[in-house]
Simulated scan of single mutants.
Amino acid sequence: MKRWPVVVPQAARVIEVGDTVRIGASGRSVFLVREVDPDEGRAVIEAVGDAPGSYPFSLPLTALVRVDPGD
């Protein structure tokens, strides 16, 4: 699948496949971006680490906040 950079208005940052994100600015859990659909404005994310019952799911890009390395 192609890597489609998408600018997320609330965070003003580009979210790409392979980035780590949180759901909302106050989110605690960290997720890995598996797919990005720029036409739909959505990304498929999956929990990072060994979370029980972890599975990929889709959310609007506007709900995601990119996690900078070291955060």
Rank of each mutant, 00 (worst) to 15 (best):
M1P: 03
M1H: 14
M1D: 14
R3Q: 15
R3H: 14
R3Y: 13
W4I: 14
V7C: 09
V7Y: 12
P9L: 01
A11W: 10
A12E: 11
R13E: 15
R13T: 09
R13C: 12
I15F: 04
V17L: 00
D19Q: 00
D19C: 04
D19L: 00
T20D: 04
V21P: 12
V21G: 08
I23S: 04
G27V: 03
R28E: 12
S29L: 14
F31E: 00
F31Y: 06
F31K: 02
V33N: 00
R34K: 15
D37K: 06
D37S: 09
D39Q: 09
G41P: 04
G41F: 05
R42A: 10
A43R: 11
V44I: 08
E46S: 01
A47P: 03
V48C: 11
V48P: 11
G49L: 08
D50V: 11
G53I: 11
S54G: 11
Y55T: 06
P56D: 10
F57P: 00
F57K: 01
S58C: 08
S58F: 02
S58M: 08
L59G: 04
L59R: 09
L59N: 02
L59S: 06
P60T: 08
P60W: 01
P60V: 05
T62W: 09
A63I: 08
A63C: 10
A63V: 08
L64D: 00
V65K: 09
V65Q: 09
V67D: 03
V67G: 03
D68P: 05
D68W: 09
P69V: 03
P69W: 05
G70N: 03
D71Y: 11
D71H: 12
